[in-house]
Design a protein around this nucleic acid. Structure first.
Length: 278
DNA sequence: ACTCAGGGTCGAC
DNA sequence: GTCGACCCTGAG
C-alpha cells in the first residue's frame, strides 16, 4: 500500500462530494472514504489539511484517474466569482466550498439514477451496494470492494432477483436499460459527442428514464456542465430562494435555469441540491 | 404497529 | 396537463 498527494483539503470536501447523493459506493472509514473507480478500490483521505489517495500498486495513471474522477481540474473559485453579486448563490459557494461534481462511469450512473426514483440516498446506497455484492466480483479486501455488474450480468441476475433485493418497481426499468445497451439501441459511449437534446433523446429511450434522471446521468456520468437537473429539492430552492414561480413544472424550471446558467448549470444545481437537503 | 416520505416515470384520461 | 399506481425502507 502506498499513497500520493492529490490536493490541499480546501479544494475538495470529501463528505459532500463523495457521499452527497452523486455516487452511492463511497463508505466512510476513519479520516476518509473507501470506494471503487474503474473496478479498482481506492481510499481517499484527509491528513494535515491535505488530501491523499491510497491503493495497492498506485501508479501515476491511477493518480490521474482519481484526480479526474474528483474533477480537481475544475476551478471552483472561477465559478463562484461569476455569482458574487447574487447573495444567495454567493453564500452557497462560501458555505459549501469544496463540493465538486464527480466524473463517474456512465453505465453505473444510468443504473444508479434509475434506482434513485422516489427513493432516498440511504436506500439507493443499499440497493446499489447489494447489487454489487450479490452479483459482482470481489476486487479488494474491503467489505464493498466489488466490480459494478455490466448489462449482461444484470440481465442474468434477472428482474425477480432485483425485486428480491429491494429495487421494487425500478427492476424492469433496469432490465430495459440492459437490453437497450446490449442490442445497440443506445450507444452509451457515443453520448459524449451529442448535443444536449440528442443526448436527452437517447437516454430517455430507456423505460424509467425521464428528463430528471437523464439530466443526472449527463451531469454525473458524462460530466456535462450545461445540465440543470430539477428534483423536489432543487425545485424548492429555485422557487423559495431564486424566485421562480411555483406554477412551473420541473421540466420548465430545468429549461429556464439551464438557459440562465449555461455551463455553470450543473454546479449551481449541485450546490442548491446539497443546501436544500441539508 | 402505523404512518410518512424519499434525487420520478408511465400510461390513461 | 393532471392523476393514480408503482415497491421498499428507515425514521418518527
Amino acid at each position: 500500500m502506498n499513497n500520493k498527494f492529490l490536493c490541499n483539503s480546501i479544494e475538495i470536501d470529501l463528505s459532500s462530494t463523495l457521499d452527497g447523493g452523486q455516487s452511492f459506493r463511497w463508505h466512510k472509514f476513519e479520516n476518509g472514504f473507501n470506494g471503487v473507480i474503474n473496478n479498482k478500490p481506492y481510499f481517499i483521505f484527509q491528513e494535515n489539511k491535505k488530501i491523499f489517495v491510497e491503493a495497492e500498486e498506485l501508479n501515476s495513471n491511477d493518480v490521474n484517474l482519481v484526480f479526474n474522477y474528483l474533477s480537481l481540474d475544475v476551478d471552483l473559485r472561477k465559478i463562484s466569482k461569476k455569482f458574487k453579486n447574487n447573495l444567495y448563490l454567493n453564500n452557497l459557494f462560501k458555505k459549501y466550498y469544496g463540493l465538486r461534481i464527480l466524473n463517474q462511469d456512465p453505465w453505473e450512473t444510468i443504473v444508479s439514477f434509475i434506482t434513485s426514483s422516489v427513493s432516498n440516498i440511504l436506500k439507493i446506497k443499499k440497493n446499489i451496494n447489494d447489487l454489487c455484492v450479490l452479483n459482482g466480483e470481489k476486487i479488494g479486501k474491503n467489505k464493498y470492494d466489488y466490480a459494478f455488474p455490466g448489462p449482461i450480468k444484470i440481465i442474468d441476475f434477472g428482474e425477480n432477483n432485483l425485486r428480491k433485493i429491494g429495487f421494487g418497481f425500478r427492476s424492469p426499468y433496469i432490465i430495459d436499460a440492459c437490453k437497450k445497451v446490449i442490442n445497440g439501441d443506445i450507444l452509451i459511449n457515443n453520448i459524449y459527442d451529442l448535443n444536449y437534446d440528442d443526448a436527452l433523446h437517447q437516454l430517455t429511450k430507456i423505460n424509467g428514464v425521464g428528463r430528471k434522471v437523464a439530466d443526472c446521468i449527463l451531469t454525473y456520468g458524462y460530466h456535462r456542465k450545461d445540465v440543470f437537473a430539477v428534483d423536489r429539492w432543487v425545485r424548492r430552492g429555485l422557487i423559495n430562494k431564486l424566485g421562480y414561480s411555483e406554477k412551473l413544472q420541473n421540466e420548465k424550471l430545468s429549461i429556464k435555469a439551464r438557459k440562465k446558467y449555461g455551463n455553470e448549470s450543473s454546479y449551481i444545481q449541485q450546490y442548491i441540491f446539497f443546501s436544500e437537503k441539508s
